[in-house]
């Protein structure tokens, strides 16, 4: 049963990822692209968690944690750049 659920989850997340890519390429404004990138990071975290369940290993948690941190910092840095024209003032 978990196997089928995992398959379903992978399909959903891959579709979500394609939609995000679409917005990333299409996005009329720069802020749209930043938002698409941020959503992609969150989806990647979910994907890593599902992969961890499938492989029954806890090795990937650190990867997910690092992804969460880098995603947050890169989004904030990008927005700060858009707001101020500089990242560190």
């Amino acid at each position: 049963m978990i196997g089928y659920a995992l398959l379903f989850g992978f399909v959903c997340l891959s579709l979500a990822f394609l939609l995000n890519l679409w917005r990333l390429v299409l996005g009329p404004t720069l802020t749209d692209r930043v938002l698409a990138g941020d959503t992609m990071v969150i989806n990647v975290i979910a994907l890593i968690m599902l992969y961890g369940i499938m492989e029954t290993t806890a090795v990937y948690f650190e990867a997910a944690l690092l992804f969460a941190m880098f995603g947050f910092i890169s989004t904030v840095a990008y927005c700060k750049f858009l707001l101020r024209g500089d990242v560190i003032e």
Partner: peptide, 25 residues
């Protein structure tokens, strides 16, 4: 576990679908 995985997949998909469907940022 299965229900949670399926719900997670659906909510992620809906969120990303909203990113495409809605009109302005």
């Amino acid at each position: 576990v299965s229900v949670l995985i399926v719900a997670g997949g659906i909510f992620s998909l809906v969120g990303s679908f909203g990113l495409i469907k809605l009109k302005d940022l």
